[in-house]
């Protein structure tokens, strides 16, 4: 996005389109006693990847997602999004980055109950500075992508859990972010509905979206092209499935 000089890194690698790079990221909560949630995490995500961060509860997955999503600053290490070191950015710049480059999907959906589905999705662009007409036009496109055009005028309360999560995914996609971060998106859904959501993520991936998904469910992670295995705040494995 911005034009600051970030060239010349990883000179030995072939030039790759890296959406996300983490380098020695640690995160420690509290002072006495300090709780280390991340203990030196390094990995990179290329544009168009669909990757799972998988690990048991309390292993630091959510913390990792928050650091990647710039909702939290690392205690040490470097996070680059689209080549930009986020440590240099202030609250306004970080917020702008989130508004334009990052889409979030949460386990609890977090939909506004007093707004329609369409308004909920359009609000994904509220802080990106887009005019109303453009927000609603983009919302209609995103709803189409998640197969919920026919629900646009409904309130979230009238929808099933799966539909609600689709609305949340549409809201994350509406600004065409560089990366979508999903924290246990199927955690509140039954397995059939969860499978449908996974299918949707695959479709979106096929359409070019970059998605980083957190799950504690190893079987779910296995379905994805890449798995980053987290344990006690460290990446213990980074495996890719052979392309089908």
């Amino acid at each position: 996005m911005s034009g600051s000089a970030q060239t010349g890194r990883d000179a030995e690698d072939a030039p790759r389109d890296l959406v996300l790079e983490l380098d020695g990221v640690t995160k420690t909560y509290g002072h006495q006693p300090p709780v280390p949630a991340l203990r030196g995490v390094s990995f990179a995500v290329e544009r168009g990847e669909l990757a799972a961060i998988v690990g048991p509860s309390g292993s630091g997955k959510s913390t990792l997602l928050h650091v990647v999503g710039t909702l939290e600053r690392p205690s040490a290490g470097r996070v680059r999004i689209g080549g930009v070191d986020v440590a240099a950015l202030d609250d306004r710049a970080l917020s702008r980055l989130r508004a334009r480059e990052i889409g979030f999907v949460f386990q609890q959906f977090f939909l506004a109950e007093h707004a329609t589905v369409r308004e909920n999705v359009a609000d994904g662009l509220l802080y990106a500075g887009a005019p109303v007409a453009e927000r609603f036009a983009s919302a209609d496109v995103a709803l189409e992508q998640v197969g919920l055009s026919h629900r646009a005028g409904f309130r979230p309360g009238k929808l099933s859990g799966g539909e609600r999560q689709r609305v949340a995914i549409a809201r994350a996609l509406v600004g065409r972010p560089a990366i979508v971060l999903a924290d246990e998106p199927t955690g509140n859904l039954d397995s059939a509905t969860g499978a449908a959501i996974m299918e949707l993520l695959h479709e979106l991936h096929a359409g070019g979206a970059t998605i980083l998904m957190i799950t504690h469910d190893a079987a779910l992670a296995e379905q994805l092209p890449r798995q980053l295995r987290v344990l006690d705040g460290r990446i213990v494995a980074d495996t890719r499935r052979a392309a089908a």
């Binding site: 609250d91 917020s95 980055l97 949460f106 802080y127």
Partner: peptide, 16 residues
């Protein structure tokens, strides 16, 4: 609180 967190995730600044 969750609405506030969501808005921050959607790109709202502290000032907003």
């Amino acid at each position: 609180r969750s609405e506030i967190g969501l808005r921050r995730a959607l790109g709202a600044t502290r000032a907003q």
